[in-house]
């Protein structure tokens, strides 16, 4: 690969199923590219240095802090943000559970919390309470909604596990 920048360079990435070609300088973070260039303002900028979790998105299926990823690194990669979770008007189980448990107070850390838990459940449909606690530990919440976020994570994990079991009847006999 050639040396690129420091001026704006083209970057092609897929965000929430849509492929975009952006023109951004190498110093632009993925977070700023999502918010400023694509208008996807779900991921939030709180600390901008990987100490809060509010900018969490999924990069090729893994939860990352988008403030610590450069947009230019995302060439050919797949990004999912909270805006991409809704399918045909239907919310993801983590989103449903957040509503049910009142897991969002001010709501500012919420998209990051949801993306972190969603990535966990994608990777591990049978996540345990401890898995959920460890995941939520990567996303601060200043309002202190933690007990409800963890409860929502458990509820969502139950839904995801049940769906996984329904999809894979061969190991359905083993129980949830």
């Amino acid at each position: 690969m050639e040396r690129r920048g420091p001026g704006p360079v083209p970057v092609r990435m897929t965000v929430n199923g849509v492929t975009y070609e952006l023109t951004v300088p190498p110093r632009r973070t993925l977070l700023d590219a999502l918010r400023e260039d694509l208008g996807l303002t779900g991921a939030k900028r709180v600390c901008d240095e990987g100490t809060c979790g509010a900018c969490t998105v999924s990069l090729d299926g893994q939860a990352v802090y988008s403030c610590l990823v450069l947009a230019v690194e995302c060439e050919g990669r797949t990004v999912e943000t909270v805006e991409g979770l809704i399918r045909d008007g239907e919310l993801h189980p983590v989103q449903e559970a957040f509503i049910e448990h009142d897991a969002a107070q001010c709501g500012f850390c919420t998209p990051g919390q949801i993306m972190a838990l969603k990535a966990l459940l994608d990777q591990n449909p049978r996540a345990s309470l401890e898995d959920i606690r460890q995941t939520v530990a990567g996303n601060l919440c200043r309002c202190g909604a933690y007990p409800k976020i963890i409860a929502a994570g458990l509820t969502a994990a139950g839904v995801v596990a049940a769906r996984a079991a329904a999809k894979a009847p061969e190991d359905g006999g083993a129980g949830a």
Binding site: K44, V82, E83, L91
Partner: peptide, 15 residues
């Protein structure tokens, strides 16, 4: 549940 919870969990709540 909050009447504005859906906006918060979908990222559409505009701060």
């Amino acid at each position: 549940p909050r009447v504005d919870a859906r906006a918060k969990v979908t990222g559409t709540a505009r701060f």
